[in-house]
Design a protein around this nucleic acid. Sequence first.
DNA 1: GTCCTTGCAAAACGTTTGCAGTTCA
DNA 2: TGAACTGCAAACGTTTTGCAAGGAC
Lengths: 142, 142
Amino acid sequence: MESKDAIAILKSLKDKGIRFTPQRQAILEYLLDTNSHPTAEEIYRQVKERFPGVSLGTIYNTLNMLKENNFLLELDCGEMSTRFDGNAENHYHVVCRNCGKVVDFHTDLLQLDALATEHTGFAIETHRLVFYGVCGPCREIH
Amino acid sequence: MESKDAIAILKSLKDKGIRFTPQRQAILEYLLDTNSHPTAEEIYRQVKERFPGVSLGTIYNTLNMLKENNFLLELDCGEMSTRFDGNAENHYHVVCRNCGKVVDFHTDLLQLDALATEHTGFAIETHRLVFYGVCGPCREIH
DNA sequence: GTCCTTGCAAAACGTTTGCAGTTCA
DNA sequence: TGAACTGCAAACGTTTTGCAAGGAC
């Protein structure tokens, strides 16, 4: 069902001395299984249902480990708190100013990096693009 | 020297019942005069040199007021803390992964909004685009 | 057996809020 | 005069850190 496999990812990290723990497996499986862009607190609540004793510290520990290894994307969604995206592949986000919903949007805009390099002389490695607006359902209400 | 005038901006806000205070003038003048994308703390330190008694609360108060009135842009620069840009016109940012420098980069990419609307059905109002890479000087060192 | 990871609690961090006194209009 | 604003300090929510116990390899 999942395009990526939590177990495979964790095993691939063993070379770096990163250990496979059931908590990490549960966190990663949840992240790969959802497309809801959860906050750290939401991840904590979900994982706690399978691991009642898990601590928020472990959630942050694992999120930071995954971020450092590029298996996780951290999103800044305007005024909402930080959210996480288990899909670190190239895609963009659209945030509803009214209900806070975050939607993925896949397209290929690699030419933007070349444009930025040309203007600034930086060696551009990546970019982050977020759109803000009002989603379909919220437009009907207002 | 400045393209915008702090006094003119503050006077234009009087209609909304927003008062002109010397602290606000000092904060706005500093923001318009710098292109260094300061953090709230940096703004506080700078303004305190002219107003030794100014409080960090007043800095945040003023920054929020300016944000609400679209005279200020709030930036999320990856792992660094929030930074502010006194130039709220359409432009993009390039962040150096090595030294943290933030550089402006002006270009017109309004067609991106149309692309996002087409893909998602949102009424897109604005977008935020940040590039990450390594700046010229840092490339020479490494 | 080693040392990485865990849970817990306290601390740190950036930002917001409450309040009494002050200032602008 | 009266509402808006100030400085100060306490509170807030999120994230990080310290440490002793536990678990992976």
